[in-house]
């Protein structure tokens, strides 16, 4: 009987090798292991064997059955899933994925969004003022004396028909955002914490570093007690968002009519950032924004008592931040409307 079993095993192995489809596989299963299958029939005779060999032959029969079933099962899985070796060769997993067609947000929008988010988490509001303003809110309220050269230096775009009238009638495309914050303060009750993103306009010759239309991001806090270091908190909030790590900053003496004392705020990036700006290595201190407590005359213009209220203001050039973040070398690209540029962000 042992010989018969061995013979059956060979027969079974040959049959398994010849399997090409699930149908033939099923036929083999029925032919050998079915109720009337060859192996089943043979094993029925076990009970007639003497005790001495029954155990051994029984074990052999079970091994044959088990091994064959494992083999058949493997083949079955392959046939069912189609993962046959030959079939695997036909499928090409190296083709690129098909990305969904989407548009893009302007890099400035992305920058403003992430700055807004950071400031909102600090409890700041967002303000959005008019782009055409009167001279009163662009210069007068900001402590620019009548003859201050900055009134001319700003190269403001005045509107036609607003020559030599009173300040509230002389209108221009705003050359900076700062005056708008006085509008906000006039309409709201202190304390204040708000940011003010927006575009500004100056009559400058355009080149890779200069634009006639550019973007600023302003932040202002006014409270009963607001020491200088509050300013540094705002600054570091911005820069950490932009660069993804804590950027070293410093405040040093600077002069702007609307703040007193005035600060120039510098930053220094980590060593591993390469590239240059104005021929200076980026790891050197770089001037990035003016800031300081609003001048008492500015607080007065906003209807606040400078004896009671203190504040800190910063105004950052957004174009420059975006340029640094993405290593963009020409500011004019921002207004190019060129999808080949915009699609990269």
């Amino acid at each position: 009987m042992k010989d018969e079993l061995k013979k059956l095993q060979n027969e079974l192995e040959d049959a398994i090798k010849a399997v090409t489809s699930l149908d033939t596989l099923r036929e083999i299963e029925v032919a050998f292991f079915g109720r009337k299958g060859k192996l089943t029939n043979l094993l029925k005779n076990l009970k007639d064997l003497p005790d001495s060999v029954r155990k051994e032959v029984g074990a052999l029969g079970n091994t044959i059955k088990h091994d064959a079933q494992v083999l058949l099962n493997d083949i079955k899985v392959k046939l069912e899933t189609g993962l046959d070796d030959e079939l695997v060769d036909v499928f090409d997993p190296t083709v690129p994925g098909k990305k969904p067609l989407i548009g893009s947000l302007h890099p400035h929008t992305q920058m403003i969004n992430s700055l807004n988010e950071a400031f909102l988490s600090l409890g700041f509001e967002i303000y959005d003022g008019p782009e055409i303003s009167s001279e009163a809110f662009v210069f007068d309220n900001l402590n620019f004396p009548d003859d201050h050269p900055a009134r001319e230096d700003m190269d403001t775009y005045w509107l036609a028909g607003s020559e030599s009238k009173k300040a509230s009638d002389r209108m221009c495309l705003r050359p900076h955002l700062t005056g708008g914050s006085i509008r906000y303060m006039k309409e709201n009750q202190p304390p204040f914490r708000f940011v003010y993103p927006g575009r500004v306009f100056r009559s400058e010759a355009t080149d890779a570093k200069h634009e006639k239309t550019f973007y600023q991001y302003e932040a202002l806090m006014i409270d009963k007690h607001m020491p200088f270091s509050a300013g540094q908190l705002m600054i570091e909030t911005i820069l950490e968002r932009v660069f993804g790590y804590k950027v070293e900053t410093r405040m040093r003496a600077g002069f702007f009519p609307f703040v007193e004392p005035g600060f120039e705020i510098d930053m220094r990036l980590k060593e591993n950032i390469t590239g240059t700006e104005k021929g200076k290595k980026l790891t050197q201190w770089m001037e990035i924004m003016p800031g300081g407590p609003p001048h008492p005359n500015v607080l007065r213009a906003a209807g606040l008592d400078p004896e009671k209220w203190q504040g800190f203001y910063i105004n950052i050039g957004l174009d420059r931040l975006v340029m640094m973040k993405h290593a963009i070398d020409d500011v004019r690209l921002f207004h190019s409307g060129d999808i080949r540029f915009l699609d990269q962000f």
């Binding site: 893009s104 947000l105 006639k212 207004h335 999808i339």
Partner: peptide
């Protein structure tokens, strides 16, 4: 769509 910024 792609967002553009234009002059005023």
């Amino acid at each position: 769509l792609h967002e553009v910024y234009n002059y005023p």
